[in-house]
Design a protein around this nucleic acid. Structure first.
Lengths: 123, 123
DNA sequence: CAGTATCCTCAATGATACTG
DNA sequence: CAGTATCATTGAGGATACTG
């Protein structure tokens, strides 16, 4: 029986303008989203911890990035009914996989930034 | 002699708001830049080939993305004085390293997009 | 072919103030 | 603490026309 049936888990195609994989990649590589993923790869963090660790991020943008990543199933949001209130953000299994790739890229950038700056001077 | 000298190639710090590594990461993960890198990992391409392969990109944004990546030393731009004119874009050694990480991420996204879409429905 | 120049629009981002 | 609401800004991005 040759496979003329459709695959159960169709692969995305980032070259297609209308493929939803575009939005997923955008969330993972967004300005603040990528940094959030890398920080959470280390350990779970509270909202205010994330604000302090990620230099320059506003609460608004952080909350927005967190919700996008939570919606995609990359991040777990746990609310504790204490006072003052506490919310902890951590990576799901899916999020850890994605974050590992993002982390590899961010590490590479941090190691090679001076090489890039030298290239810019010659440009 | 303990190292009280400064490192020759200081490491970037993406958590610092003013670190230039932020801009480098932005170029590599930008909407069109990331797709350009992955396409060029396959082989060198002409400008019009890139336009056709990357669905939805405008000439303006493609040119802008290419210049940013060229400026960072990731892409080599070769102009051939023929008629009609021909310009070929390829990855530098540095660009191949960066693109490999981006490619790993894009591949992961394409393979897992359906899982993400299911997570979104539950959200 | 491989772009650049110009105009235009809107969504992303930031600043500030406020709330449960 | 962990956000939301509102307003203001601006830069990304698209459409169109034009050029070497």
């Amino acid at each position: 029986m040759p496979s003329n049936s459709k695959p159960k888990h169709p692969r995305g195609n980032l070259y297609a303008a209308d493929c939803p994989s575009r939005a997923v990649l955008d969330h993972l590589t967004s300005r603040w989203g990528s940094l959030v993923l890398v920080v959470l790869l280390e350990r779970k963090h509270r909202f205010s911890e994330l604000v302090r660790r990620i230099g320059g991020v506003s609460e608004k943008m952080l909350a927005q990035s967190l919700r996008a990543l939570e919606g995609d199933g990359f991040i777990l949001r746990e609310v504790f009914d204490t006072k003052p209130p506490m919310v902890e953000y951590s990576l799901t299994a899916l999020g850890k996989e994605a974050a590992a790739h993002v982390h590899a890229l961010t590490q590479w950038v941090e190691r090679n930034v001076s090489t890039v700056l030298q290239a810019r001077e010659r440009f």
